[in-house]
Amino acid sequence: METRIVPQTEMAAFVGELMKTARVMAPVRRDGVGYFEWLESADQLDATCVVPRSSPKAALLPRCETLFGWRLEKGEQRIVPPPEPIPQILFGLHPCDVRAIATLDAVFASDPSPDRLYLARRAVTTVIGRGSLADPATAFFRELGVDPMDNGGCDLFLAPLDPDRHVLEIISDKGRALLPACERFPKADDRALALLADLRKSSAAKTEANPGLEQLAAKLAGMFESDLWSRIHEHCAGCGVCAFLCPTCHCFDIQEEQRGDRGARVRVWDTCQFGLFTRHASGHNPRTSQKERLRQRIMHKFSYGIEKFKVPFCVGCGRCVGCCPANNDLRAILRTIRETPSE
């Protein structure tokens, strides 16, 4: 694998080069808070942000995406296919966010009807991960087996050596296509690579090698009627913060937009936390209270997702932990589940 050394001070210049080849989504900071956003200029980049508050899923599953458009022509409705996606680079993704993309891939590529819109966008997406040596206080990705120095799933990976330098690993064909933007950086020498190997070793040692997710899934499957659910929903306000910030939550609604003689069918983010989510046209609702909705959220993430798609719908990024208005801590919920004796 080809490797280069990228000085921290050159990060914005690197992004500037990348922006010549595709649109780039990267961490920015506003009022002290990190967000993943499409960059307008390279100097917006915040190269210190580890897990920005908004997740990069918006690049693959936009908050609002046109499924197709239509217009009336001489009284006939004509379908207008959505525009083809343009090449895009996701820069500076924490390995947990990269893992989240694998989750989205598993869902949207699933048979019998792979989602062509998602897959087309995914095909023109280059993922540049960035490792991290310090874990955010609210994160729990190590518990779920995600190593913050792991370059799996990345096309390019920036592995931190110290506060001033990263080793740039050029991993895939998509990554190699960006070589012109990387060639300005010196090749990594053996000393740097040895240091990186050490850092990786100690990071791996701190990461749960066997997170036992299948066992957790199986245990949860038997906990549908547990009184745990009546306890943990009481202070949940029923908002969509957790789901909308989550890098793996992908549930969507399909809505109609119309203006005069043209319109579009769009998909917009939705969440199982909203009461409307499962309400039938007849008025019947299988999930009448926050208890059922919160249970669905936990079950979908740690049981149904694993059973059906073989991947957990959680990567431990901690966004929901830090931003829940009621501080309903997913880590604590998981701990309670693990501690609950099996029936």
Binding site: F108, S110, D115, H250, F252, I254, R267, S303, E307, K308
Partner: peptide, 13 residues
């Protein structure tokens, strides 16, 4: 969606 993507019609898994 009707094709197993939008995540709202599940009964258990």
């Amino acid at each position: 969606c009707g094709i197993g993507k939008c995540g709202r019609c599940n009964i258990g898994p």
